[in-house]
């Protein structure tokens, strides 16, 4: 996880609160909902940036939109961000919070690239193998199809890439032939 210098402070504060209340799952879901809404409505990147927008009206909009629908800590976070003029950081905070939560629960996200679409059993098998390898309890697999890798798999977990694709092996053979030695 890359820590955003400011966002991470908010994220860890929210994380502490949620863990004390035992509402990690719920908070995570709330953050995802809010992020989705923000994205769909352009609330953060257009509406809130309008020169005539005041803090009062921002809070009004948030109250209308989210009061009662998300948990109090998340709603309070939104209002606090407006007060501190840090509402731009919401996306980063959500990301950092997710990373913190996953770390605490031993979950990791994995991007899997394959030449053909994967079946559910295959996904499960990959999750099992790589969860063991990385020492996590659970892997959430995001599957991507990329015909250019020809065959095999390319798995990215955090900053680590496990590359067993045919394309990569061909590239390495190519390199070795140019260098003229076998390592």
């Amino acid at each position: 996880m890359r820590r955003h210098p400011v966002g991470f402070r908010y994220a860890s504060a929210l994380f502490e609160t949620a863990r004390e209340n035992g509402t990690l799952e719920e908070t995570l879901a709330d953050l995802a909902t809010v992020s989705q809404v923000m994205e769909q409505t352009n609330l953060l990147d257009e509406v809130f940036r309008h020169p005539k927008m005041t803090d009062q009206r921002k809070k009004g909009i948030l109250e209308q939109g989210f009061a009662g629908k998300v948990s109090t800590p998340v709603f309070n976070l939104l209002r606090l961000l407006v007060d501190n003029k840090r509402e731009d950081l919401f996306g980063v905070i959500a990301d950092n919070f997710k990373a913190l939560t996953y770390e605490a629960q031993g979950i990791a996200e994995a991007d899997v690239y394959s030449a053909k679409a994967l079946s559910e059993e295959e996904k499960e098998a990959i999750a099992r193998v790589f969860a063991k390898r990385t020492g996590k309890t659970e892997l959430l697999i995001q599957s991507h199809v990329d015909p250019e890798i020809i065959g095999g798999l390319r798995v990215r977990i955090g900053d680590t890439v496990y590359d067993g694709t045919i394309a990569n092996q061909l590239a390495r053979i190519h390199e070795r032939m140019i260098e003229g030695n076998s390592r």
Binding site: M1, R2, R156, G158, D159, T160, V161, Y162, D163, G164, N168, Q169, R172, I173
Partner: peptide, 28 residues
Amino acid sequence: YETEMEVSDVGTVIRVGDGIAVAHGLEN
């Protein structure tokens, strides 16, 4: 040729200037 899996740590370039680059990721 051994068909072993290549494991590498990666990052993503977020900015390139004259002779320098700034990357995100590359944790270790």
